[in-house]
Simulated scan of single mutants.
Amino acid sequence: MDVQRGSDGDAPDLRLAVSYRDDHCVAQVGGVVDAATTSRLVAGLAHPIATGVRLLVVDLSEVSVFGSAGVSALMSVRAMARVDGCRLRLACCPPTVARVVALAALRPFRSVAEALAARPVPPPRA
């Protein structure tokens, strides 16, 4: 995973790695997702959407802290995805993350494979 360090240079606070495959990509997120890190998360997830992928699966299995700012960030990314004809799917939420995203009516899949299999995805943009 690509490691992004906090402004003080201490231990990594947010990890994000994106793998592109055909018409979709999988973003693995780890570490802390809170008010201090969400701008980097949004920017990191916006890039694959801008490249024209039809499906963006966000694997949250390695997230250790997930605050309400994380929900807002994911809702912003979902709105961007919809505008660009991309579907956003969350996967592999640890129990603490699953409880927070459920409050925002975001339905996570149990695995990346399940999220990828739950087709259809939007048709390519014209």
Rank of each mutant, 00 (worst) to 15 (best):
G6S: 05
S7C: 10
D8Y: 01
D10F: 14
A11L: 14
P12Y: 02
P12H: 02
P12E: 03
P12L: 01
R15W: 01
L16H: 10
A17T: 15
Y20C: 07
R21D: 09
R21L: 10
D23R: 15
H24A: 11
A27K: 14
Q28P: 13
Q28D: 10
V29W: 10
G30S: 12
G30W: 12
G30Q: 08
G31H: 08
V32D: 07
D34P: 01
A35C: 13
A35Q: 12
A36Q: 14
T38A: 07
S39Y: 09
R40L: 12
R40W: 11
L41T: 12
L41M: 12
A43P: 12
G44S: 04
G44A: 03
G44L: 11
L45N: 01
L45Q: 04
A46R: 15
A46Q: 11
H47R: 14
P48S: 00
P48H: 00
P48Q: 00
T51K: 11
L55H: 06
L55N: 03
L56C: 09
L56G: 07
L56N: 08
V57I: 13
D59K: 14
D59C: 13
D59N: 15
D59F: 14
S61V: 11
V63K: 08
V65Q: 02
F66H: 00
F66E: 00
A69H: 07
G70F: 00
V71W: 02
A73Y: 00
M75T: 13
M75N: 05
M75Q: 11
S76K: 13
R78K: 11
R78N: 07
R78D: 09
A79N: 09
A79V: 13
A79Y: 04
A79D: 10
M80E: 06
M80H: 08
M80D: 07
M80C: 05
V83S: 04
D84L: 12
G85M: 09
G85R: 06
C86N: 03
C86Y: 02
R87C: 06
R87H: 02
L88K: 07
R89Y: 03
L90P: 14
C92H: 05
C93N: 02
C93L: 06
P94Y: 01
T96H: 11
T96F: 10
V97M: 04
A98Q: 01
A98I: 03
A98E: 06
V100H: 04
V101M: 03
V101K: 00
A102M: 01
A102R: 10
A104K: 00
A104L: 07
L106P: 14
L106S: 06
R107N: 07
R107H: 05
R107Q: 07
R107M: 07
R107A: 06
R107V: 13
P108K: 00
F109A: 05
S111Y: 02
V112R: 07
A113F: 09
A113T: 14
E114A: 15
A115I: 15
A115G: 09
L116E: 04
A117G: 14
A118E: 05
A118P: 14
R119T: 10
P120F: 07
V121D: 00
V121N: 01
V121I: 08
V121H: 04
P122A: 03
P123F: 06
P123C: 06
P123L: 06
P124F: 03
P124S: 01
R125N: 05
R125C: 05
R125S: 09
R125P: 07
